[in-house]
C-alpha cells in the first residue's frame, strides 16, 4: 500500500510554515544589533563583529522610560491576574456550591461578558474612570482588565470546582472548617492547575493590549510597554537602529518567557480550551 501522506511532505509543510512564522521575528532581532549600513545592505546576515553596533539600544534605554514602562506592564498584568483569579475563584465557588434564588440568573449575567467585548463600553469607561479620578493610573487599567477577564475566569474555574469531589468539602465541614476556611484551605489549593490556565488566558491579551492604555493611561509615565513602544516608534520612525532595537526590546523578554513556559502555556491553552 502506498502511504498517502509522506512524512517528508508533512515535515516540508510544517517546516515552511514555521520558517514563515519565525522569519520576521528573527530578522528584526538580528538587524537590531547591526550598524545602519549593514541593516540595509546585508539584511539577511547575522550580527558579526564587523557589522555589530548597539547604537539602537543605547537610544532606546537612553531616551525613553522603557524600564518604567516594563514595570507598568508587569504591575498591571500581575495585578490583573491576581485579582481575576481571586475574585473569579470566589464567585465560581459560590455559584457552584451554594443554592440561592438568583444563582442561575447571576451565572448568566456573569457569562455575558465572555462574548460581548468590554471595549464597546469605552465611551462610558473613560467617563467613569475620570469621575473616579483614576485617569493615567495603573489602577484604572487593572480594574478594567479584571472586569474584562472575570467572565471567562468564572466559567473555567466553575468547571474545575465541579470536578472537586463533594466529599472533600464535606470532610472539611465535618472537620469544623467555616465556609471561608473550606474555600481558602481546601478549594483554593486544589484549583492551582485551573488557575494556571486562567492566568495564561488573562496574561497575553492584557500584556499586549493597546486600546485601554491608549484611552486610560496614555501619558504621565503610566504607559505600558506596548503603548510605550508604540509611542517611541512613532517618534523615531526614521531611525532604523532605534526602531529595530525598540522592537527587539519588546520582543525578547516575551520570547524568553515563552520559551521557558511554552509547555505549561500550551498545556493550559489546550486543557482550558472550551469544548
Amino acid at each position: 500500500m502506498r502511504k498517502p501522506v509522506s512524512a517528508f511532505a508533512v515535515h516540508a509543510v510544517l517546516a515552511l510554515y514555521t520558517a514563515l512564522a519565525l522569519f520576521p521575528i528573527i530578522l528584526v532581532i538580528m538587524n537590531s544589533f547591526k550598524a545602519k549600513r549593514a541593516i540595509f545592505n546585508t539584511p539577511l546576515t547575522p550580527p558579526m563583529p564587523w557589522n555589530f553596533d548597539p547604537i539602537g539600544y543605547s537610544k532606546v534605554f537612553g531616551d525613553s522610560a522603557i524600564a518604567t514602562y516594563y514595570m507598568n506592564s508587569i504591575t498591571v498584568t500581575v495585578g490583573t491576574i491576581f485579582l481575576t483569579l481571586l475574585f473569579g475563584a470566589m464567585a465560581a465557588w459560590a455559584l457552584t456550591e451554594y443554592k440561592f434564588r438568583w444563582n442561575t440568573a447571576l451565572a448568566i449575567f456573569l457569562s455575558i461578558g465572555i462574548m460581548v467585548p468590554i471595549r464597546l463600553g469605552s465611551v462610558s469607561i473613560i467617563q467613569l474612570v475620570s469621575d473616579l479620578n483614576l485617569i493615567n493610573t495603573l489602577t484604572a487599567l487593572i480594574l478594567v482588565y479584571v472586569a474584562q477577564n472575570l467572565p471567562l475566569a468564572v466559567f473555567i474555574l466553575s468547571e474545575f470546582i465541579q470536578q472537586i469531589p463533594r466529599d472533600l468539602r464535606e470532610a472539611g465541614r465535618c472537620d469544623g472548617l467555616s465556609e471561608y476556611n473550606i474555600f481558602f484551605y481546601i478549594i483554593l489549593p486544589l484549583l492551582r492547575p485551573a488557575m494556571a490556565t486562567v492566568a495564561v488566558f488573562t496574561m497575553i491579551p492584557v500584556w499586549n493590549d493597546l486600546w485601554f492604555p491608549l484611552l486610560l493611561a496614555p501619558t504621565g509615565g503610566k504607559q505600558t510597554i506596548t503603548l510605550g513602544v508604540q509611542q517611541f516608534l512613532g517618534q523615531y520612525i526614521t531611525d532604523w537602529n532605534a526602531v529595530l532595537a525598540a522592537l527587539s526590546t519588546a520582543i525578547i523578554p516575551v520570547l524568553v518567557l515563552y520559551v521557558i513556559f511554552s509547555r505549561q502555556l500550551i498545556r493550559g491553552l489546550t486543557s482550558g480550551a472550551v469544548k
Binding site: D167, E170, R173, C174, L177
Partner: peptide, 20 residues
C-alpha cells in the same frame, strides 16, 4: 447543629483525603 458541633466523625466512600 453544624456537622462539626455534633461530635461525629465521618469516613467517606472516596476517603476524601485532602490531596495537598
Amino acid at each position: 447543629l453544624a456537622p462539626a458541633q455534633r461530635e461525629i466523625a465521618m469516613v467517606f466512600q472516596s476517603y476524601a483525603l485532602y490531596p495537598h
